[in-house]
Simulated assay, not measured.
Amino acid sequence: MPGADRPFWTRPLASLGREEWEALCDGCGKCCLHKVEDADSGRIWPTNVACKLLDLKTARCSDYKHRRQYVPDCLRLTPALAASLEWLPETCAYRLRADDQPLPEWHYLVCGDRDAVHRAGASVVGKAISEVLAGPLEQHIDWGDEEPLEVERVDEE
C-alpha cells in the first residue's frame, strides 16, 4: 500500500484506523468549549466555557469513554466533520489533516511531548472556566477582534 511506511499522521484521513484517528487529537481541549450561535446570522462565537467533563488542568476529557452518557450532545468527530466544521480551531490536528496540512511542531506526535501543546499556548489550560461555575454563556463570548453588539436599553414608562 503506497505511503504505508510514512507516519500515520501524514497519511490521508480516510486511510487511518480508529486508533490512529483517535491518536490525532492534540489534547488542546478547544473543541470542548461551548459555542454560541447568533440566531440571525448563524455565526458561531467561541466562549471560554468548558464542558463539565473537561479537566481544566490537563485539557482532557475526564470520562471520554462514557462522555455521551453525561453529555448527550457531545459531538463524535469524523473525517467528514473535520473537513466541514468551521468552528474547529485552525490548529486542530483533525482540521489540519482534513485540509492536507502538516501538524504543528508542538503536536505530541511530532515532538514526542504531550505537554508541548500547553507550553505553546495552544490549549485551554489556564484559559477556560467550567460550565458548572460559568453562569450564562453570553457573558463568556470571545469576540476576537470584533466589538460586542451594544444593546440600547429603553426603560418602559
Rank of each mutant, 00 (worst) to 15 (best):
residue 129 I to T: 11
residue 35 K to Q: 14
residue 14 A to T: 10
residue 134 A to C: 07
residue 69 Q to D: 02
residue 60 R to C: 04
residue 24 L to N: 04
residue 3 G to K: 03
residue 23 A to C: 00
residue 29 G to I: 00
residue 94 Y to C: 08
residue 84 S to L: 15
residue 63 D to S: 06
residue 70 Y to Q: 09
residue 138 E to R: 15
residue 131 E to A: 05
residue 26 D to V: 01
residue 149 L to A: 10
residue 148 P to F: 12
residue 88 L to E: 10
residue 119 R to P: 00
residue 124 V to M: 04
residue 71 V to R: 07
residue 44 I to M: 11
residue 76 R to E: 14
residue 157 E to A: 13
residue 75 L to G: 09
residue 106 W to A: 01
residue 39 A to L: 10
residue 12 P to V: 04
residue 156 E to T: 08
residue 142 D to Y: 05
residue 107 H to I: 11
residue 102 P to I: 11
residue 88 L to A: 12
residue 87 W to P: 13
residue 125 V to C: 10
residue 63 D to W: 08
residue 83 A to Q: 10
residue 79 P to N: 04
residue 35 K to C: 00
residue 27 G to S: 01
residue 23 A to Y: 04
residue 109 L to R: 12
residue 80 A to R: 15
residue 11 R to P: 01
residue 58 T to I: 06
residue 29 G to M: 10
residue 144 G to M: 14
residue 98 A to F: 09
residue 18 R to E: 12
residue 50 A to E: 01
residue 120 A to C: 03
residue 88 L to M: 15
residue 51 C to L: 07
residue 53 L to Q: 09
residue 50 A to W: 12
residue 5 D to V: 05
residue 20 E to Q: 12
residue 93 A to D: 12
residue 18 R to H: 05
residue 134 A to G: 05
residue 20 E to N: 06
residue 108 Y to A: 10
residue 42 G to N: 06
residue 14 A to E: 07
residue 70 Y to C: 07
residue 156 E to A: 10
residue 67 R to E: 02
residue 34 H to S: 02
residue 105 E to Q: 14
residue 70 Y to E: 02
residue 124 V to N: 00
residue 101 Q to T: 00
residue 19 E to L: 02
residue 72 P to M: 05
residue 52 K to F: 06
residue 11 R to W: 05
residue 116 A to N: 11
residue 70 Y to K: 13
residue 63 D to R: 14
residue 69 Q to L: 08
residue 39 A to W: 05
residue 21 W to M: 00
residue 128 A to K: 11
residue 150 E to H: 15
residue 45 W to D: 07
residue 52 K to C: 07
residue 46 P to V: 02
residue 60 R to N: 04
residue 149 L to I: 04
residue 124 V to P: 06
residue 79 P to M: 01
residue 99 D to M: 15
residue 26 D to P: 01
residue 130 S to Y: 15
residue 99 D to W: 14
residue 37 E to R: 08
residue 138 E to N: 13
residue 147 E to A: 09
residue 37 E to P: 12
residue 31 C to N: 03
residue 70 Y to L: 14
residue 33 L to N: 04
residue 90 E to A: 15
residue 3 G to P: 04
residue 49 V to F: 03
residue 50 A to C: 02
residue 93 A to S: 13
residue 113 D to F: 06
residue 8 F to I: 05
residue 39 A to E: 14
residue 46 P to F: 08
residue 8 F to K: 04
residue 121 G to Q: 05
residue 126 G to F: 15
residue 11 R to S: 12
residue 117 V to I: 14
residue 157 E to I: 02
residue 1 M to G: 10
residue 52 K to Q: 11
residue 114 R to G: 02
residue 44 I to C: 09
residue 113 D to K: 06
residue 44 I to D: 14
residue 27 G to Q: 10
residue 98 A to H: 08
residue 121 G to M: 11
residue 88 L to N: 03
residue 111 C to P: 08
residue 99 D to N: 15
residue 22 E to Y: 12
residue 36 V to A: 07
residue 2 P to F: 05
residue 37 E to G: 10
residue 81 L to H: 14
residue 96 L to H: 11
residue 105 E to K: 13
residue 100 D to Y: 09
residue 28 C to F: 06
residue 95 R to V: 01
residue 61 C to A: 00
residue 157 E to S: 12
residue 54 L to V: 00
residue 148 P to I: 05
residue 118 H to C: 01
residue 30 K to A: 07
residue 86 E to I: 01
residue 53 L to S: 05
residue 49 V to T: 01
residue 94 Y to L: 03
residue 96 L to R: 14
residue 78 T to L: 02
residue 150 E to L: 01
residue 43 R to D: 14
residue 68 R to Q: 00
residue 73 D to R: 12
residue 30 K to Q: 10
